[in-house]
Design a binder for these strands. Structure first.
Lengths: 345, 345
DNA sequence: ATGAAAGCGCTAACAA
DNA sequence: TTGTTAGCGCTTTCAT
């Protein structure tokens, strides 16, 4: 049952490399961290020794010495079943990829939904990570205020809605621009009564997206009153909200705050025998897999998560540079993926 | 009388705790790692000091000393756009959650798709992680054979298809059982001509799932010949494959190797005005968000990813225990989520 | 049950 | 340009 699953020999150390190259340990360290200091022939000799031994610096030792781990902490929130929030997956991948290019790795930790600061504190005090990426600023900002007070470096994906005076770096996507983009697209394909199916009023992200709809529709001289519904972000709420809109407001398009709601709207249309895209257009938000896969295809606002990751890592590097450099907030523009539910007629 | 505490710039160290508690550093270390050695009153005094100072052991120092990082490496593969493989998200979350309960954290790294060993090697040599979770065994096993030869501890999610003699721990889901489960369900709701829409023959996972379909259908004395199509795992391939089956084989049910293919099949049905679940049943694999959200709902085989994570972490703990214990492979049973596309008639 | 000493592998500061 | 010294914070002997 037991097996010798440990590596047979210990990995080579910096001292081994120094011996082999016939130089001191410090010279090897310099070859790694400050190669310009070495004479070319010495550098080459050291690099040969490194290659021959397959040497890689021991991270624990380096971390201990430099007081930095080159690890970025990211709380991995539970995926909500039955919703279309596969955003995280795309973002995490982009983040991991950009981090690699900067020599960082991503450390995932599970937070407590009740007390969001719980995971952060332990990782900070144990110097396990150099900084955090905080993604759930829509939950209010207990973490960010805590992190800020503790002077822990972090970059937020999401605006500090509750405390606009917060000075930490953040990157966000312009929801209002996305809402307007979608609304103008619907106007362009000939829709006149564009309804909004969104989240409850306490959602700042929801209100942001909604404001784009309001602005674009009014700009076209068309009505918004009586054409809005606010519900929870669930499939069934979306279906019920859309049903209500269809029965009471007679819209020819429904613009939704999320793909989850948009899929709910498609349910409502199907139940009434209404064809999406022909009779009533539907547009969602987030360009989820469901939007991409549903028969006919669901038009959706796509968040530029790859760009977000780039900006987040840039801000992180600024923060961790010496001296630290505080990059200004970045608000990125979403795009629109047009599919069958908003075909031109 | 205790002295007033002022939060220092640097986190408190073990020596700070020792000073405050009036004991030696080693006693504090023992309080942490071997509390049974201490006299109850000493232990209490140390714990008080730890709490007062908000002390958390420095991970780098501990890692350096113990030669372990309590980090588990996980390669985060790129999410394929336009497919329903949101599996990873659910699995990662379960894994992170279980790891926390065992005092581990998950380190994400981006691999190179061309040379899958690239990320692993650096992390191993730098002792950045104690072990790996390998998820993409369906790609063949360059990583696993490499890891095994390097004697790096790892647990695979996925069988060693190419090398059944491999002795590393692994956890997998029984695809054949899933295929049979879905097929029997379709038989139970009165379907007689159950087609298979699967991947190409070189996919071991696909052949595994398919074998369950074959067995269950034959067991019922019904035909399988002429009722199978093999395509790539894309939406359009699924649509085309389903279209071919519908036109040439007249099935009353299509069992698919993935939700992506199943969504493609729904496209094909929609184009023909065929109602899923009434005229032709459709069942997918993986219980993706698309399956949960698509109007009518897509019946799908659900992988027990939470259980997989539990077993993976258990195997990991065995591997990292001293002496190491090699847990036997685990093959877990999937379940079926019945939705509208396979309603009883 | 508690304490003293050593050292894990690395890099910052300084010396040569 | 290269080498020497010191020490990051912790745990592992071993001694008391």
């Amino acid at each position: 049952m037991t097996a010798p699953y440990r590596r047979p020999v210990l990995p080579p150390t910096l001292a081994d490399v120094a011996d082999r190259a016939g130089v001191s340990r410090q010279t090897v360290s310099n070859a790694l961290n400050n190669p310009a200091l070495l004479r070319p022939d010495t550098l080459a000799r050291v690099q040969d020794a490194i290659a021959e031994l397959g040497y890689t610096p021991n991270r624990a030792a380096r971390n201990l010495r430099t007081r930095s781990s080159r690890l970025i902490g990211l709380r991995h929130p539970p995926a909500h079943e039955g919703t279309a929030d596969a955003l995280m997956d795309r973002f995490v991948h982009s983040l991991v990829d950009r981090c690699r290019q900067s020599g960082y790795h991503v450390l995932l930790f599970a937070g407590d939904d009740a007390d969001p600061s719980v995971g952060y504190e332990e990782l900070v005090n144990s110097t396990a990570v150099d900084a955090f990426v905080v993604t759930d600023t829509f939950l209010g900002t207990p973490q960010t205020t805590w992190l800020e007070r503790q002077r822990v470096p972090f970059v937020a994906f999401g605006r500090p809605w509750e405390s606009p005076s917060a000075k930490h770096p953040w990157v966000d996507v312009d929801g209002a621009a996305g809402g307007a983009l979608a609304a103008r697209h619907l106007l362009a394909v000939g829709r006149q009564r564009i309804a909004w199916l969104g989240w409850r009023k306490d959602s700042r992200i929801g209100e942001d997206r909604r404001s784009g709809w309001t602005a674009a529709v009014r700009e076209a001289g068309l009505p918004t009153t009586g054409l809005a519904a606010r519900v929870d972000d669930t499939l069934s709420s979306g279906r019920e909200g859309a049903a209500m809109l269809l029965d009471e407001a007679r819209p020819d398009a429904i613009l939704c705050a999320s793909d989850t709601l948009a899929m709910g709207a498609l349910h409502a249309l199907a139940e009434r025998g209404i064809t999406p895209g022909r009779d009533v257009a539907v547009v969602g938000f987030d360009d989820s897999q469901a939007a991409q896969l549903v028969p006919g295809g669901l038009t959706s606002v796509r968040l530029p998560l790859e760009e977000v990751a780039i900006e987040v890592v840039a801000a992180l590097e600024g923060l961790l540079a010496r001296p630290p450099m505080l990059l200004p907030p970045r608000l990125l523009e979403p795009t629109l993926r047009v599919r069958g539910t908003s075909a031109a007629r």
